[in-house]
């Protein structure tokens, strides 16, 4: 546990140092930039709640990727599942108008079903035809992207808008603000808690984890590996779909052009940083959300382009993973040396 924290912190520090170097060589002031970044993402109630709200899709897609990777299926389809969830929630919000207490859960369920539909398609292709979900989900991402682009440009287009987008969804489907905090954050916390419980405490989650570690062992132990594969695909698709639904319901309240592009690979990236741990995904997700949120404010006062956030994120992934694996090696070496010397003492 301490190992994890030490190597994680070390990775973040090194990555930020690399980022500082990159900025320094372009003539920016790294410390002022980082200070602005922190100020606009964590300094005060409003920045903090914005960061948390922006963390919702990041953490949910991150959970999706983390659970998938830890259980075996290489589900890289979060971007496609997210836009399908968003599309399903938008459709519901456009054509169904119930009181908020019913509308909000309904739209969430629709989003979940939308995401699960798209990941289930990839799962089915794997089950029925042995088509590797790795490339299938990637291709389905592109197809989902073009499909939703078509939907918002033709059948559901809002003719009053300047760029392709749907009309706004029924107001009863908007995620309400609780003071400064958007209620989608509460949904996120609930989702993390439920997934942690399922994954760490339930039999199903245990079977998924075992299958991810050693599929043959799981099968010989009596797990229905094929059924678990499908279950994991559906659950992870549902999480990404929920992320899309919450983006629509909490933010622009409609499906706008390029909605998915912002979160495209972020979830996968966060899961990789978190080494597929669920709690770690939550932490790194909020961290990345802070960088993204802070970057917009930072641009205003330091004239460093906000796109630096994307560069920083990629550096973070590489450095955190490399540090973790390298640190594990070092820790092992130190432990081995200590063991060897204590054995020597005993012999003497």
């Amino acid at each position: 546990m301490t190992r994890k924290i030490v190597s994680g912190l070390l990775g973040v520090v090194i990555a930020l140092a690399v980022g500082a170097l990159i900025m320094f060589f372009q003539g920016y002031e790294p410390f002022a930039t980082y200070a602005a970044l922190a100020q606009f993402s964590l300094g005060g109630i409003a920045p903090l709640t914005t960061t948390l709200k922006n963390a919702v899709p990041l953490v949910l897609t991150g959970l999706s990727a983390a659970i998938a990777f830890a259980s075996g299926p290489v589900n890289l389809g979060q971007p496609g599942q997210l836009v399908f969830g968003a599309l399903a929630a938008t459709l519901g919000g456009l054509y169904i108008n119930l009181p908020p207490a019913l509308e909000i859960p309904l739209l969430m369920v629709l989003a979940i079903l939308g995401g699960a539909l798209w990941s289930g398609l990839a799962g089915l292709l794997r089950q029925a035809f042995d088509m590797s979900e790795f490339i299938v989900t990637l291709m389905l991402n592109m197809i989902a992207d073009f499909f939703t682009a078509w939907v918002i440009a033709y059948p559901l287009m809002d003719h009053k808008a300047f760029s392709p987008m749907t009309p706004p969804i029924a107001q009863s489907g908007w995620m309400p603000d609780l003071g400064p905090l958007n209620s989608s954050v509460l949904v996120l916390i609930a989702a993390v808690a439920v997934m942690w419980f399922v994954f760490q405490r339930w039999r199903a989650g245990y079977e998924w984890r075992i299958t991810g570690q050693n599929s043959l062992f799981a099968r010989l132990g009596g797990c229905d590996v094929r059924r678990n594969f499908m279950a994991v695909m559906l659950v992870t698709g549902a999480l990404a779909g929920l992320a899309g639904g919450l983006v629509v319901m909490g933010g622009p309240h409609r499906f706008i052009k390029g909605l998915g592009a912002n979160y495209a690979w972020d979830g996968i990236m966060i899961a990789i940083m978190a080494n597929n741990g669920l709690i770690e995904t939550l932490i790194y997700g909020i961290f990345v959300a802070a960088i993204q949120t802070g970057a917009l404010g930072m641009e205003l006062i330091t004239n460093v382009p906000s796109e630096i956030a994307q560069v920083l994120q990629a550096v973070l992934v590489l450095v955190i993973v490399a540090t973790r694996e390298y640190a594990a090696l070092l820790f092992d070496r130190v432990a081995a040396r200590r063991q060897a010397s204590s054995r020597k003492e005993r012999a003497a």
Binding site: W265, M269, E307, Q310, V311, Q313, A314, V315, V317, L318
Partner: peptide
Amino acid sequence: IALNLFALG
């Protein structure tokens, strides 16, 4: 994956 992200970013 990180490199693809790095290139995009």
